[in-house]
Structure formats: structure tokens, C-alpha cells
Amino acid sequence: MDVQALRTFVAVAQTGQFQAAADELGVSQQAVSKRIAALERHIGVTLLVRTSRGSRLSLDGQVFLPHARRILAAVEQAERAVRPGSRPLRVDVLNRRIAPAQAVYRFYRSHPGTDLDAVTLDKENAVQAAQAVLEGTVDASFRALPADQVPAGIHAERLLDTPLELLVGPGHPLADAPWVGPADLAGHRIWIPGIRPDTEWAAFYRALSEAFGLSIDALGPNFGDEALMDALADSASLATLVGSGDRYLWPHNHDLRRIPLHGPTPVYPHVLLFRSGDQHPALTALRDHLRTAGPRTPHDAWAPNWAGPPAEPPG
């Protein structure tokens, strides 16, 4: 059914005049007449009866009018639902403890009133997340996706580099170091449970291990962050890696230590994936915020070769 014809019918019903409806819709009276005639042919009844004073609804027209109004209201609601800026920007932040979630939260704090939803997709890898963006499940996702795996229709920007830190208990040999180099971790047991094969973080830690001769242990069940913190606190040899912007909590008596890595500084390259040509104003504002107010990539940053270059700040 022609939506413009429905709008024209409702306009004539409200004004009682073909010319008045034409003026309201910004078309000619002839166009109004053609639309009404086409609508009446489509449904097979006469909706409007012309009189010397204009037009009036037929009995069928009176029955049809409330349905036409409901159809037009539904169309308007559907258009608003997908119109840029008329719905919340949905951003997949991977995990609410790690840097992307914190970056989106800082953006929201600096842009009060922004209509925004931070979500965590149940997707195992970056390729699946990119597909979810392409399908419109979310507007954007923070992932580490090699350039040659970015699907057509998706734009990728490396907008958030997260420096890694060593997290150890008080008895670890490196517990009191102000910073350590990645190569200094060779021979130490680094435990990161829960790394799933065929994910971008598995590829990242594999590249990190190969670059600096590290032994990263992903064996054993992942019982959650609290169990990992307990194990670190009780061990004189166990360590793990976390992002500098990640928010982990542990009991005060655990006395865990976060030690920066430098020389070079390994960074996890979070890439923002979004649909090419997406004009949502909150997405534009988020990208601008990350370029200008987001944490800067360290001068000695190391990232896998497949990560591509970080986005250039404006100006």
C-alpha cells in the first residue's frame, strides 16, 4: 500500500478540501486526486465523496480512516527507530572491566545526555563481532581485527591502545620493580586462563610470546577474576597480564602489584568497528573523543604486525 496515498487520504479527511490537502502536503491538487484515485482502486471502495463544498468521507472512508492513521503512526515509529540520532548508539565493549568499557564511560561522562547503550556481545571472536555490526545488532564494537579480515561494508579504526601491565603477588621476584621490560619476563610463568583458540586475544598473546620469548600459560579452567587474584596473592612465581585501564578489584590483604611494562611497551590494539557511512551523531562524537581525549599511544609501543597503524589524532 502506498504510504504517500495514505498520508494524502488522511490530509483530505482532516481538511475536507483537496486543495487544502495539496497545500499542506506541498503538491498539486492534481497529484492529490491521482493518489486518492489510486488508493481507492487498490482497496476497491470509494473513500471520499466530492460535494459542492469540498469532500466528505464515505461510510467506507469513515471505517478506513482510523486504520490509515494507525498505519502512518507505525511507519513514523519505524522511521524514527533507525533515523540517525533518534535511538541510542549501541557499542559492544567486550567486557565491562576492561579499557573499552572505561573509555566509553569517560565519553559518556564528558557528553552528558548522550543516548548510549554499552553492551557485551556473546561473540567468540572479532570476525563474528564484525558480522554483528554489519547486520545492525550493534552500531560499533571494540576488537583487534587484522585489516585483511575486515569485511566489506565495515570501517575499522585503531582508536584505543591499552598498555599492558604485569600483575603479581607480594612474594613475586618482580613485585617491587618500578617497571620491567617484556624480555625480562622470559622464564617467568604468566598465567592467563580462559584464552579461547581462534580469538583475537589468542592471536595477540601468541604474537607477544613469539616476539619476546615468553611462556604464557592458558591451561586450566577459568574460575573467574576472583580466583585468579587469589592464586596470584598466594604464589611467589605466578603472574598475569592486565591492561592499564582495566578495573580489577581484590581484597586489601592480597597486596597485589601492578607493574608497567616498558622498553618497548606492549599495547593491546583495540580497533573500533562500525558500518561504513554510519552517520549516527553519537558515533561521530565517540570517534572524535577517542582521537582527542583518549589515552595516547606510548612512543615505544609494540603491537603485532597485523594490528595496522593507530589512528592519527586530528590537527
Rank of each mutant, 00 (worst) to 15 (best):
V32Q: 00
H155G: 11
A239K: 06
Y108H: 15
L228V: 14
A144P: 09
V32H: 00
L94P: 01
Q128G: 12
L65D: 02
P170Q: 07
L256G: 09
A101P: 10
I216P: 11
D139V: 05
E24N: 08
A37S: 15
A227C: 05
A20D: 08
L185N: 06
R247W: 05
R247P: 01
V138G: 09
P221S: 11
F64L: 11
L94K: 13
R41S: 11
G220L: 08
A31E: 07
T137F: 03
I71K: 00
S237L: 04
L72D: 07
L214A: 11
P193Q: 11
W179G: 04
A156P: 04
W250V: 01
E165N: 08
A118I: 11
G224R: 01
L121W: 09
A207S: 14
L164S: 05
Q149R: 15
S276N: 11
L208S: 06
F204M: 09
I71M: 09
P221E: 12
G169E: 02
R41Y: 06
L166A: 04
L59E: 15
K123I: 04
G26A: 10
D23I: 01
P264F: 09
A126V: 07
Q149H: 14
I98T: 14
V119F: 12
P304S: 10
S209H: 03
L283H: 08
L261W: 04
T137E: 13
L261I: 14
D117P: 01
A147N: 13
R258H: 13
T46H: 05
Y108R: 13
D2V: 00
V104M: 14
H262Y: 08
G277S: 07
S52L: 12
L167N: 05
R206N: 12
A307D: 06
S86A: 15
R143S: 08
P295S: 02
I71G: 00
R291Y: 10
P314I: 07
H254C: 03
D246V: 09
L273F: 13
D92N: 15
R287D: 05
R35P: 03
D176Q: 13
D148T: 12
P100Y: 03
A21R: 00
R83K: 13
T120Q: 15
L167A: 07
H172N: 07
R189C: 12
E79Y: 01
P309D: 11
A186N: 04
P163T: 13
P313N: 08
P84L: 14
K123Q: 13
A211E: 15
L47S: 00
E165Y: 10
S215I: 04
I259H: 07
L48R: 00
L208C: 10
A81V: 07
S276P: 02
G54D: 10
R56S: 10
R287H: 05
L159M: 09
L261R: 03
G85S: 14
F142N: 03
T297Y: 02
T284C: 10
V127F: 02
D122A: 14
A132I: 08
M1K: 02
A68P: 06
T46E: 13
V91R: 03
S141P: 11
L174K: 12
Y268G: 06
E124L: 14
L57K: 02
V127N: 05
L57I: 04
H299C: 03
S276R: 14
P260L: 04
V12E: 01
D115I: 04
A293V: 03
S110A: 15
I71W: 00
L59G: 01
L59Q: 11
I259L: 08
D217L: 05
A202V: 01
P309F: 12
I192F: 12
F64V: 01
